[in-house]
Amino acid sequence: MESDALLNPSPTQSQSPSGRCWTRPDQWVGRLILGALDSTKRVGAFALITLVVTLTRWNKSTVVLRPLVARQINRAGLLPLPMLTFLGVALGLLVSGQTVALLSRVGAVDYAGVIMVSVIVRELGPLVTVLLVLARVGTGIVIELSTSRALGEVEQLEALGIDPVHYLVMPRVIGVALSVFSLTVYLVLIALISGFLFTFIQDVPLTPSTYLAQMSSSLRWEDFILLGLKTLSFGVVVALITCFQGLANAVRLEDVPRVTTQAIIGSVVACVVIDAFFIVVYLVI
């Protein structure tokens, strides 16, 4: 009976991540919200520290820091290119395939370019890119930093008078932010080209010049600014959350898988919240 109760807890008994039981769902939800607010506050404090360190030590130890930034750009911006090319082609084909058939049926093929801009440039391009970078690089950042923390390498840096935020966090934030921005531009271009190729294969009466004209007419200068801001925000937030989870929490090796999961969940939620904010901005301007 007791093992049954353990394996199949009653619906009114939920367990918090810390292992404590909450007897009512509203308590569990309350704790979840408070926990999320607390995490947000701590990540915010970590972001402020990183900002201050970045501003005050921008020109310090550049000989040591520049190769670290270059390594992060190589890791987050160059190595994911083959996978991102595949995703860009697939994204263009999927969006174009779903929309062009429908638009042809209702005689509205003139809107193909407009839809591609709305869906790929404003929404899916940045989101798909940041999720790929998170899966490929973000997880790596949490694992390496939390392992370094668990093995005491962060204390060792402090003992050598090296600021861990300057040496470990700043290169990752700069590298990941620049990479997400550049990769998004690359993915959007690949997706728009592959989208047109699909219409060409499907024998849709749409010339390249018409397709380009449709896209350029639907693109506004705000799109470029907001795309830049959005992708840089995604990159900074993913790097900050993964670095925070790696450095601020793990003190034992067995904690590494748990903090990696927390970092991924936190990053996805933060990116969705940022995306929602930019949707509101698009609607307002």
């Binding site: 310090k60 130890s61 550049t62 000989v63 040591v64 093995l151 005491g152 390498e153 204390e155 060792q156 003992a159 050598l160 008078g161 090296i162 040496y167």
Partner: peptide, 28 residues
Amino acid sequence: FENGGRLFNELTIEENVALPVCYHRDCL
């Protein structure tokens, strides 16, 4: 520190030894 001195495994031994001086003097 004890038990291995917490070295940085991605750096060579020379780079490990030189790291603090390169960082503080901003030199190669």
